[in-house]
């Protein structure tokens, strides 16, 4: 079981389909790695099913339903029943740490980009979402520059682990909070720490050197 699960009210937001794409992907990754949260999501889906089943049929003029059924049946001719998907379609070994919900967002040509000489980043583009969605990779023992955010920050660990003022986070662990708290995560010993971070922009660097780089960050150059 995860030591740092996503809060239950956030799982409800996720199951209800209320989260923007970025935070929703962060929760999906956590859920795919954490059996405890996955069970809760299955229960919540069942709650959604019970709410649908409890619905009385919508009031419609007599015959409308039959017409809708006829139209739909007519469309089935050109839509085939798909075969059961074969699991295990993975990307190259470079992304062997990526859980299933992340795979559709990765492309073979994607590579890590060095940022500030301190960490590596792959920026993900989720259309229509205002969040900044990134995969970050930190070598063991290295830290992220001290920073804070103006909005909420969601983090899910995909490989290795890190430690900050709030605790130690391993694979599958989830952190969410107002980013206004300054924090300085340090990667644990062992393999590099890879995490997906979703933040409401912008990030503000707070260290003595970092402060001077903020104009570049706000323009999206870093």
């Amino acid at each position: 079981m995860s030591r740092h699960p996503a809060p239950e009210e956030l799982l409800l937001d996720y199951v209800a389909g209320a989260l923007p794409a970025g935070p929703s992907l962060a929760v999906a990754l956590h859920v795919s790695l954490d059996p405890h949260s996955r069970r809760m999501v299955e229960r919540l889906n069942a709650l959604g099913g019970a709410l649908i089943e409890r619905e009385p049929a919508a009031e419609v003029a007599v015959g409308d339903d039959d017409a809708a059924l006829e139209r739909t049946l007519a469309r089935l001719g050109e839509i085939s029943v798909e075969r059961r998907p074969t699991p295990g379609a993975r990307l190259s070994a470079a992304f062997d740490w990526a859980p299933a919900p992340l795979v559709p967002h990765l492309r073979p040509g994607m590579g890590w980009r060095r940022v500030l000489g301190k960490f590596d980043e792959i920026r993900l583009d989720l259309p229509g979402d205002f969040h900044r969605v990134s995969l970050l990779r930190l070598e063991a023992g290295r830290g992220l520059p001290q920073h804070k955010h103006s909005g909420y920050e969601y983090t899910v660990v995909l490989q290795g682990g890190y430690t900050d003022e709030t605790g130690n986070y391993g694979v599958g662990d989830f952190a969410v909070g107002p980013g206004s708290v300054r924090h300085e995560p340090i990667a644990d010993q062992g393999e590099p720490c890879i995490a997906m971070i979703v933040v409401e922009q912008p990030i503000v660097l707070t260290g003595p050197v970092g402060r001077w780089l903020n104009p570049l960050v706000s323009r999206g150059l870093i």
């Binding site: 795919s32 299955e42 559709p104």
Partner: peptide
């Protein structure tokens, strides 16, 4: 309201593989 995203992405989340 927003650009479309592929529904398939969501369906794979709880595919039998996990």
């Amino acid at each position: 309201n927003r650009p479309a995203i592929d529904t398939e992405d969501w369906l794979t989340v709880f595919a039998p593989e996990d």
